[in-house]
């Protein structure tokens, strides 16, 4: 009997030890998710709390699936993610490689490199809004003073330039996340394979392509995964710089969801949009994790 109780206690111990974490997950993650899933099946309006009791099934989703404007925004968000993340990776890689090579003042440079991360996205938005302002902005004034153009370039209005400006601000703010993680990868890299490659007569490009890059790719995919989830911080930048306009040219899922949920107070519909956009996040995360596993297997780290 005593042995039975002891065995049972031993079996319960892990569950008991895990229970604080499980309860936290339940209340902080699972319940809000279930609640927002339920509200996406209602016409819930923030200013009329009683509407949460009206169940309308999938009507919010049906409306969204037949709304071409929503899918245009969905597609634009994917494009934004692809361009911004790839540019941040490329620039981050470049910065990390350069900083890795210098021997004097590296710590100072590392600190300076992190400055853009320290700004709040709202401040970054205002900063670039005034840089890109067509009339009193620094950029146009510089271009005109240097004689490069005699036009006022509408950076925040033109279809392509407006997206470019937003991506520029986003890349400026977040490239250092990639740079820091990739630099950590470079610091962790063993010297032996590099020296062996040099002894074997590899040139710099070959060393980079076949040794350095495969080694830091897992770090790159971790950075990609973090950034693909965290990139919604760009919401503040877009809101301040263009508000999703003009004429919806820079509308992204986050600005659309926030306007629908708060300004229009249609939280039910906004949550339906948010659930569809969650599919996007899951897809990106899954893709990067698959790539991460593959990259680790390639360099022999997984086994």
């Amino acid at each position: 009997m005593l042995r039975y109780l002891r065995t049972r206690q031993a079996k319960l111990t892990p569950i008991l030890l895990l229970s604080p974490a499980l309860f936290t997950m339940l209340f902080v993650v699972a319940l809000p998710l279930v609640f927002s899933l339920y509200t996406s099946l209602t016409p819930y309006r923030l200013i009329r709390p009683e509407t949460i009791e009206i169940f309308i099934g999938l009507r919010n989703y049906v409306r969204l699936f037949s709304d071409p404007d929503f899918w245009e925004v969905f597609g634009r968000t994917i494009l934004f993610l692809l361009i911004a993340l790839n540019l941040e990776f490329l620039f981050g890689l470049g910065i990390a490689l350069l900083i890795n090579r210098i021997t004097w003042g590296q710590r100072t440079l590392r600190t300076i490199m992190m400055f853009p991360m320290m700004f709040s996205p709202v401040l970054v938005g205002f900063q670039f809004k005034f840089i890109f302002n067509d009339n009193i902005g620094v950029l146009n004034n510089a271009l005109q003073s240097l004689g490069i153009t005699d036009q006022a370039i509408p950076w925040l209005v033109d279809r392509e330039l407006a997206m470019f400006s937003i991506i520029f601000a986003e890349v400026w703010m977040s490239t250092s996340v990639f740079a820091i993680l990739l630099l950590a990868g470079l610091f962790a890299m063993p010297r032996d394979p590099l020296e062996a490659a040099k002894v074997d007569g590899c040139n710099s490009w070959q060393v980079f392509r076949h040794i350095t890059l495969p080694f830091i790719m897992p770090f790159a995919f971790i950075a990609m995964t973090i950034r693909s989830l965290d990139v919604a911080r760009a919401f503040d930048i877009v809101t301040v710089m263009t508000g999703g306009g003009p004429a919806g040219r820079t509308e992204l899922l986050w600005t659309l969801i926030a306007r629908t949920g708060y300004e229009n107070a249609r939280m039910g519909q906004a949550n339906a949009m948010a659930y569809i956009s969650t599919i996007l996040s899951i897809a990106f995360t899954y893709f990067f994790f698959t790539k991460l596993v593959a990259a680790r297997r390639f360099m022999g780290g997984a086994e």
């Binding site: 302002n133 009339n135 009193i136 370039i153 209005v157 407006a162 263009t242 306009g245 004429a247």
Partner: peptide, 20 residues
């Protein structure tokens, strides 16, 4: 200005104050 579709109150106020 070409950027007016993106202007809010600060932009118009500062624009006029800039003398342009």
């Amino acid at each position: 200005p070409r950027g007016v579709p993106n202007y809010l109150w600060d932009d118009t106020g500062l624009g006029f104050a800039s003398g342009s």
